[in-house]
């Protein structure tokens, strides 16, 4: 599954490390394109299929994953020399589970509707391969600050794909944008009385009035197609990703 071994092994010990040197910036930008957790490493696809039917929950989910990924990397890296090797997976899992529970409790306390909507998927961040994968592959062997950046980068790489997929699925599947958030848009679709959102740009006779919502886009399968298309586009533009073997 994962083919991510190129750049994480050689970062070690230098007399003085800048806070945002070239390597640090690379840690942040790499997962966005060259080493994207979803389209290149193909990790965390399960939740990417499940939560992306609307943009707003996807944004919340992305923030949650960035938080969990970044801080679990940080804590694992801080503890990396004292974690007994025999139980390291369990220790990593406890750290991840703790952070996910914190996210869950905070959402429950401050944004209950979205907590209801994401339901089990928040809990399933624990099993998101991206988080555990980064801890094993990077945080266990690198210093805290870099591990933290790596976590943020991978969380963002995951979130970016999530939001792009959700955008297409929501617009073409439901004809809305940001539904459920304080800023709701009704963009396309012929029937105004069915969905009446706060901002309605799809007035009768609008130029997109002929479009009827595509039921397939609401289903998780549509995310699979969309991610597949992204991988295709990405690989045809990014020379580094072309598989020689």
């Amino acid at each position: 599954m994962a083919e991510n071994t190129v750049q994480e092994t050689q970062v070690q010990a230098k007399p003085k490390e800048p806070l945002f040197g070239k390597k640090e910036r690379k840690l942040l930008s790499d997962p966005l394109n060259d080493n994207n957790p979803i389209t290149v490493q193909v990790l965390g696809v399960c939740s990417a299929l499940a939560v992306t039917s609307l943009v707003y929950p996807s944004v919340v989910m992305s923030i949650a994953v960035v938080f969990v990924c970044a801080f679990s990397s940080l804590f694992t890296s801080l503890l990396r020399n004292s974690i007994p090797k025999q139980v390291r997976m369990i220790v990593q899992l406890v750290i991840i589970a703790t952070l996910v529970t914190i996210v869950e409790l905070v959402l429950k306390g401050f944004n209950y509707p979205i907590y209801k909507q994401l339901s089990v998927y928040i809990g399933l961040i624990i099993t998101n391969c991206i988080v555990m994968g980064r801890l094993e592959a990077f945080a266990m062997a690198n210093k805290p600050w870099r591990s933290f950046l790596d976590g943020v980068g991978n969380g963002l790489g995951y979130g970016a794909i999530l939001i792009i997929v959700a955008f297409f699925r929501e617009v073409f599947g439901k004809g809305t944008l940001f539904a459920g958030s304080p800023l709701e848009w009704n963009i396309i679709g012929p029937n105004n009385e069915i969905v009446s959102y706060t901002i309605n740009t799809a007035a009768e006779g609008s130029w997109l009035g002929w479009y009827s919502n595509n039921g397939l886009m609401v289903m998780p399968a549509a995310a699979m197609f969309l991610i597949g298309i992204f991988i295709w586009i990405q690989r045809s533009y990014n020379k580094k990703l072309i598989d020689i073997s």
Binding site: S82, P84, Q86, V87
Partner: peptide, 8 residues
């Protein structure tokens, strides 16, 4: 190991 896990 036991101590580490217990404290954590």
């Amino acid at each position: 190991i036991v101590g580490f896990v217990a404290i954590m």
